[in-house]
Each structure stands twice: as structure tokens, then as C-alpha cells.
């Protein structure tokens, strides 16, 4: 938050919408979505669709509602006291915000990785087994196969296969983050929400995790919040720019990554990308 919004906002910001291309059908549709924490508005009136099978990056300064947007998608916002969500949100035909929605089924389909790796305080094996068994995705006889397959998918199998029964906290930060990714992938989700997944990691671990995310393209819909614009540019197909305006976050611009970064339509986007770069 180094720029002063007053001097940069020429007119009321208007979302510049690029219609979804037919070969990228939307999986997430938000309409007039707003989140408030008590009196504080996290973001206001976001109307947007996110395409299936693509990597979408959310960029913008801190406190403009990007993480809050993510936590709407898997109803994790429910956990925050005095948080209220308004508007409509539809994931693959499921009305996410409805009280009747089965949040457990929703959260199986929409996995999430946090900034700080947060493995469960149990063994490596049990970190993966716990959600698998709890969702009844496999039984006790086949669970070890699932664990191996999942850990191979995140390249962790070779590193941990001899110490599956050790506490997950014995792993390095990067390994823990990959374990968390494996835990999410084990549930065979459709959508993965990544909240600055690399920012707490050293550069090498960060690179490993980034490569993993790229490898998910096509098979999963990935929505990633990142402050690292270079990373967003490297890995994302689509990008969306959030900005804090009048005390609430707003979606300023979204579209294919290249157009947002190289030919931003809105002056705020241009200023942010140039400011953050220079």
C-alpha cells in the first residue's frame, strides 16, 4: 500500500469485462458478491466468472479482499466471527452460499492451501489418510496405495517414504507445503484455492511448489492469490486485479493474463503493475 488512491483514481472504477471464450467454460460464477466483517467491508459487488481448468491469479495490494474472496469459495468465511457474505456464488451449478449447501461436500470439491503450511499435528501418513477416510473415499485396506499415489504426485514420496509415521512437523517448510497440497489433491477436488502458497518458503522450495502448481493446469481449476507479480505472470492463464476503494476491496479488471499485464485497460491496473515492477 504505497500508492495513494486519491491521486490515481480518475473516475469511479468500473470492471472491464472480457467475455469468457467458448473454449474456456466458466466453473465459478460470482454475482454482486460482497463480504463484510462486522462494519468493515472486505470487498464489494464482485461480478466475475472463473474458467474451468485454468490458472487464475488474483493480484492487488494487501487488504483489498483477495483472500476474503477465496474463503467465500469454500465457505471458510463461515469460521470468521461476524463475517457476512452477500450476493450469489455458483460453482458448477451448486449454490455455494445457500444454507442448505453441504459444506463438507463443497470443501471436498474445493481444496485450499494457505500461506503458512499447516499440516495436521499427526504423522505424515495420517495427514493424508485422515481426510481420505473421513470422506470415505477409500477404505483402510486401500488407503496406503492412495497415500503413495498422492505423495508421488507432489514429488514427496521419495523424500518421506521411510518416515511416514513421523510427525509432519519434522518436514521442512517446502515439504510441509507440498504435503498440504497432497492432502488437498488426495480428495480429488475440482478447484484448488492457493493463498500465497510460496510466500513463506525459501526460493528453492518456492520454485518446486510453483512447478507443481503449473503441472496442475488443465486437470484442476486453480485460483491463486499472489503478491509476486512475476510469479503471476509466469504461471497464470487469467488474472484479476483487486484494489481498495472507499474502504472496500473492488475487482478492477480481469481477463487473460497477458492482456492484464501487457495491455491493462484500467489506469489503476497500469499504475499498480508498473509501480510494483519499478
Amino acid at each position: 500500500m504505497t500508492m495513494t488512491p486519491d491521486t490515481l483514481i480518475p473516475t469511479k472504477p468500473v470492471a472491464v469485462t472480457v467475455p469468457p471464450r467458448p473454449d474456456h467454460p466458466p466453473i465459478i460464477r460470482a454475482e454482486n458478491l460482497s463480504v463484510r466483517y462486522g462494519d468493515h467491508r472486505a470487498f464489494d459487488q464482485v461480478t466475475w466468472t472463473i474458467a474451468r481448468g485454468r490458472i487464475t491469479a488474483l493480484i492487488g495490494p494487501s487488504g483489498c479482499g483477495k483472500t476474503s474472496f477465496l474463503t467465500c469459495l469454500n465457505r471458510l468465511a463461515d469460521l470468521v466471527p461476524r463475517c457476512s457474505v452477500a450476493g450469489t456464488l455458483d460453482i458448477d451449478g451448486m449454490d455455494v452460499l445457500s444454507a442448505a449447501t453441504d459444506v463438507i461436500a463443497l470443501r471436498r470439491r474445493v481444496g485450499m492451501i494457505f500461506q503458512k503450511p499447516n499440516p495436521f499435528p499427526v504423522s505424515i501418513r495420517r495427514n493424508i489418510a485422515l481426510p481420505l477416510l473421513d470422506h470415505r473415499l477409500c477404505d483402510r485396506r486401500t488407503v496406503d496405495d492412495h497415500i503413495e499415489r498422492t505423495l508421488r504426485a507432489v514429488g514427496l514420496w521419495g523424500e518421506v517414504k521411510d518416515r511416514l509415521n513421523q510427525s509432519a512437523f519434522c518436514l521442512s517448510g517446502g515439504q510441509q507445503q507440498r504435503l498440504c497440497l497432497a492432502r488437498a489433491l488426495a480428495l480429488k477436488p475440482d478447484i484448488l484455492l492457493l493463498d500465497e502458497p510460496c510466500s513463506a518458503l525459501d526460493p528453492i522450495s518456492s520454485g518446486v511448489v510453483e512447478d507443481l502448481i503449473v503441472s496442475l493446469r488443465g486437470r484442476y481449476t486453480v485460483v491463486i492469490v499472489t503478491h509476486n507479480l512475476a510469479q503471476a505472470k509466469r504461471i497464470a492463464d487469467d488474472a484479476a486485479f483487486f484494489w481498495l476503494d472507499g474502504g472496500a476491496g473492488r475487482l478492477i479488471e480481469h481477463g487473460p493474463c497477458r492482456s492484464v499485464f501487457e495491455n491493462p485497460a484500467h489506469p489503476l491496473t497500469r499504475a499498480y503493475i508498473h509501480g510494483a515492477r519499478g
Binding site: 471458510l76 469460521l79 499435528p121 481426510p131 480428495l187
Partner: peptide
């Protein structure tokens, strides 16, 4: 709170969270 957020994000049921995450912690 991290453990609990992780459990909720993984869609663990309440008994699963209690037995698998909260009691060990």
C-alpha cells in the same frame, strides 16, 4: 487456529476434526 482452518478447508467432518486434529494437538 491454523489446525482448525486446515481441517475445515479439507472438509473434515466435525468428529473427524475432533478425533484426528484437535485431540492430537
Amino acid at each position: 487456529g491454523d489446525h482448525l482452518r486446515a481441517a475445515a478447508a479439507a472438509g473434515l467432518s466435525r468428529p473427524g476434526t475432533i478425533r484426528g486434529v484437535v485431540f492430537p494437538a
